[in-house]
């Protein structure tokens, strides 16, 4: 028999509405309110050992302490599963359910889930960390919501790995994973094409990105003759031996090296470890990738003020957007703190 702990707000615990939203955290034995609907759905497969109740305002006023109390309570009672809600389209309640599930699953390793309306604010905040089933926008959808919570929840409690969100009947957590199919890609491709040609609705297996946020360019450099210019490359130029172990593809690391070392390209020699282009001409003369010679000539002529003492390098091939954004931000911060005015970025 699966032992379930259940989280509810003051309204669903029968304490009262908005005027009772300050109701303090309490633990009740057994099932309360929607918990009874859960037991109707599970039949003899499960029991509700505890119901955790907290007013919505009280939860948000003292989140950390209440989460600690919940974790301590469940560390003691060791349920097999935590169900929070369903919260439907209630903003604060949904966020509380997300926070409780996140804390309990991450700190205790107890499978946890909640049910919310797919457009509720909790979805954006917790979808990547918390298992959620979609519900209607109000308690009118209680029966369906409970059925989904029980179906997915008992699977979690049994240790069943998550499958594709649409097959599981879950709100997608936002990550992609391969599954084995018995319909070959060629057949799926031709099915899609036939639908598209017939003007019928079709569903791409990969959705196109929403428009990327435009990044406004920095204002032009007012006086180039006094500007410090840095060299940045994603062409994988590193000292021989790759001391910072920058990956040759799918990079997660960047590093900076003194341009003084690069100037003569001697001991250690600089080489490209990039796995996405033929680097033999760069290895023969790294100025072809990181044009230090040309930039130093401009500095000598007084066209620019100075070449920054370090150049920055990573590898740009197969790099995920997440890591590319992070590394870009980290490099930009370092450049700004060093008083660099502009960068020359060379790619491959």
């Amino acid at each position: 028999m699966v032992r379930i702990a259940h989280y509810l707000n003051q309204f669903f615990a029968g304490i009262g509405g908005e005027d009772k939203a300050d109701a303090p955290f309490e633990v009740r034995e057994g099932a309360v309110g929607p918990g009874r609907a859960i037991l109707l759905e599970t039949g003899d497969d499960a029991e509700i050992v505890q119901t955790l109740v907290c007013g919505d305002n009280a939860f948000h006023a003292g989140t950390d302490a209440i989460l600690d109390a919940i974790v301590a309570t469940l560390a003691e009672s060791k349920p097999d599963l935590l169900i929070a809600g369903p919260a439907f389209n209630a903003g604060r309640y949904g966020l509380a359910c997300g926070a409780v599930c996140s804390a309990v699953s991450e700190r205790l390793g107890i499978p946890s889930l909640t049910g919310v309306y797919p457009e509720a604010p909790a979805v954006d905040v917790y979808r990547s960390r918390v298992v959620m089933v979609p519900t209607g926008d109000s308690a009118a959808g209680m029966r369906e919501a409970v059925a989904s919570l029980v179906r997915v929840g008992l699977g979690l409690a049994a240790g069943k790995p998550l499958g594709p969100a649409d097959e599981d009947g879950r709100i997608p957590m936002g990550y992609r994973k391969a599954v084995v199919t018995d319909v070959p890609a060629a057949r799926r491709a031709l099915d899609l094409l036939m639908a598209k040609l017939a003007g019928e609705p079709f569903l791409s297996e990969v959705a196109l990105p929403k428009g990327a946020e435009p990044i406004p360019p920095a204002p032009a450099v007012a006086d180039l003759s006094s500007a410090v210019i840095a060299l940045v490359t994603d062409g994988g130029l590193v000292p021989e031996g790759n001391p910072d172990r920058i990956e040759s593809s799918s990079a997660t690391r960047w590093a900076r090296y003194p341009v003084a070392d690069l100037a003569g390209n001697h001991d250690p020699a600089f080489l490209s470890i990039h796995a996405g282009y033929d680097s033999q001409w760069v290895d023969a003369d790294p100025n072809r990738l990181v044009p230090l010679d040309a930039l130093q000539a401009l500095a000598a002529e007084g066209v620019i003020g100075k070449v920054h003492e370090f150049f920055y390098a990573t590898t740009g091939t197969g790099t995920t957007v997440t890591h590319a954004e992070r590394m870009g931000e980290e490099i930009a911060k370092a450049l700004i703190s060093d008083g660099v005015h502009a960068v020359l970025v060379t790619s491959t």
Partner: peptide, 28 residues
């Protein structure tokens, strides 16, 4: 190429016209 944890945007390059894509899994 959705990253090791699968959370990244999965395609290297797209055009708006490519609205019907069949997936064969991620290299990552």
């Amino acid at each position: 190429a959705a990253g090791a944890d699968g959370y990244d945007f999965p395609l290297f390059y797209t055009v708006p016209e490519a609205d019907a894509i069949v997936s064969v899994g991620s290299e990552d």
